[in-house]
Design a protein around this nucleic acid. Structure first.
Length: 420
DNA sequence: TCTGGGGTCCTAGGACCC
DNA sequence: TCTGGGGTCCTAGGACCC
């Protein structure tokens, strides 16, 4: 049996842990740049129709009128709270797959002698007691079924956030209960497609001939189909795999027209992604840089472009990547536009010790330099050392807007909660 | 005025190899 | 009239996830 534990309205719940005054009250968390709503607790969902990803400016009045508290996103806080949850889960099973910041699959095989429903409640209680975060627990023979069980644990109040599919009757019953769009792995396109041919429940989907599924939904759909029928196709991935692409792209706090500021942001992002690259002991062969205006705007002239640089030798050296990145940026930059976003993405990722050099390669790279660089930043905090990128202005004019960010209660000494 | 960010996997088709 | 057979690698685009 496989369990999936998933935190309820995770970001909003994290904020509430440190703000007990907000318990039982509506809370939403906004995306980067305070652009749109990315998390809402059940109180917020209940009182206002707050669609996820709704631009904030459209519903701000409504939020204020309803006394909804809103927060800018605070990923440092959420990341740390996530670690706490994952550590607790490891006490319940040695095999844990951290699937995302707020959910994990756990292996529950070999526990035939115990009542899995009780076990689920124990997990839920312990996480609540130790972290203050509410979770839902779904347990079933396959991952896809466990996901449905998890959904059912929350949707039907009587389940009290734990649901176990441990019989053929419960499996079939859950398949009838679940809408096709709620099946993990079936997104918008396939949902529309399936609805068009009259398939509305998960059960309907499992009754389609496999050949149809395979033809129209590839092998991915076939796995989903089999998993729903109780045949496990997706195993637990305990070891996190090295990333195949590492990128970052953030909207500017305001629209930018000058290349100097965009360049600064671009260098900053390259600094960030190369650090991630080194942390997994990899090098990258390709560096992509892209630039875009605000595609939502009807008034602005639109332009977007991207360029992918093939590096002579795969590298993880910030300075080399930065030089190449800047060159690339200059090649796609056109003046006369109001830019909204610049992004970088590293790909063609290979292990550091398997880098294929070319015939004429001369080792000039000083690996030790980057090592010292990373060590100092680990010890003294992010950006204690950084390339001289930000020499033009002390204030990062391109930086994100985060007007309502909560303190970093769990990671900064000066932000620790004071109790009087 | 204002609209997020970071990923994965699969397939078809083209170009190429012996 | 009639033109082989067995592969690999790469990329773009589509679908999906949180």
């Amino acid at each position: 049996m496989i369990g999936i534990i998933d935190c309820n309205s995770f970001y909003a719940s994290c904020e509430q842990v440190f703000r007990p005054d907000l318990r039982g009250k509506p809370v939403v968390v906004l995306s980067n740049n305070d652009g749109c709503v990315i998390a809402a607790n059940k109180e917020a969902k209940a009182l206002a129709h707050i669609p996820m990803f709704e631009p904030v400016f459209k519903i701000k009045d409504q939020l204020i009128k309803n006394n909804v508290t809103f927060f800018s996103s605070n990923y440092t806080l959420y990341g740390e709270m996530s670690n706490r949850v994952m550590r607790i889960l490891k006490e319940f099973s040695p095999i844990v797959e951290i699937y995302s910041i707020d959910e994990a699959f756990i292996d529950l095989s070999g526990l035939d002698h115990i009542d899995l429903e009780d076990y689920g409640h124990e997990i839920k209680k312990k996480i609540m007691r130790y972290t203050g975060l509410p979770v839902g627990v779904g347990i079933a023979p396959t991952k896809v079924l466990a996901k449905l069980a998890n959904r059912r644990s929350k949707k039907e109040i009587s389940n009290n956030h734990v649901y176990v599919i441990n019989s053929e009757e419960k499996r079939i019953d859950t398949l009838h209960w679940a809408k096709i769009k709620d099946v993990w792995g079936i997104g918008k396109k396939h949902t529309t497609r399936l609805q068009e041919i009259g398939k509305h429940s998960a059960y309907d989907f499992t009754q389609l001939p496999l050949s149809w599924v395979r033809k129209n939904m590839t092998v991915v759909g076939e796995r989903t189909w089999r998993e729903l029928r109780g045949e496990s196709c997706l195993s637990l991935e305990v070891m996190p795999k090295p990333k195949k692409a590492i990128g970052t792209a953030k909207s500017f706090g305001k629209k930018l027209t000058s290349i100097e500021l965009i360049e600064e942001a671009c260098s900053y992002y390259i600094n960030e992604v190369s650090e991630v690259l080194r942390s997994q002991n990899s090098c990258a062969k390709y560096l992509q840089v892209f630039l875009q205006t605000n595609y939502h705007s009807n008034n602005d002239k639109q332009y977007h472009n991207s360029i992918t640089v093939t590096l002579e030798t795969p590298t993880n050296n910030t300075f080399i990547l930065n030089t190449e990145g800047k060159k690339a940026l200059h090649r796609i930059f056109k003046s006369g536009y109001r830019y909204k976003k610049v992004g970088v993405c590293l790909s063609g990722i290979v292990p550091e010790n398997y880098v294929q050099t070319n015939l004429f390669h001369q080792t000039s790279e000083k690996k030790g330099l980057m090592e010292v660089f990373d060590k100092i930043n680990q010890k003294f905090g992010k950006s204690t050392l950084s390339p001289a990128l930000l020499n033009k202005s002390k204030i990062k004019e391109w930086e994100l807007v985060k007007e309502q960010r909560s303190p970093r209660y769990t990671t900064q000494w000066e932000d620790i909660l004071k109790i009087q």
